[in-house]
């Protein structure tokens, strides 16, 4: 046997000494967060104005505000949730990617399936 991992977790290095083991990073201005915040406000205001001022109507309007909502996800994920950062394998990206796919499938599929007859078929 050539090598081994001796512990169940990484406790020896980081877990045991609660209170110890935390190394702060250098102080810097939270640019990322500020930019993210401004972007999220901007996207919201845009969606809001598009609807209240009737820039468009019907399906095009729905499309536009849905796109703005999706951009909001992107902002939250990258500016606040640091989605792609962190070390180690990035399985969480896969997990959320699947979730997004199934969300679309379940919502879209349900609407499609349940659109039979009238809205009230009974």
């Amino acid at each position: 046997m050539s090598s081994h991992a001796a512990t169940h977790g990484g406790h020896q290095e980081s877990g045991n000494g609660h209170g110890g083991g935390f190394t702060p990073v250098e102080r810097r201005f939270p640019w990322l967060h500020v930019v993210g915040y401004v972007l999220s406000l901007l996207l919201t205001v845009l969606a809001f104005l598009a609807v209240l001022h009737h820039w468009l109507s019907g399906n095009p309007l729905v499309t536009v505000i849905m796109v703005l909502a999706v951009l909001q996800i992107v902002v939250q994920l990258f500016f606040f949730m640091h989605f792609t950062e962190g070390h180690g394998p990035k399985y969480h990206i896969l997990a959320l990617g699947f979730a997004l796919f199934f969300t679309v499938a379940f919502v879209g599929g349900s609407i499609w399936i349940m659109s039979f007859g009238d809205t009230q078929a009974y």
Partner: peptide, 8 residues
């Protein structure tokens, strides 16, 4: 790491 978690 960026998650503020001690990693090894």
């Amino acid at each position: 790491d960026a998650w503020g978690v001690q990693a090894r």
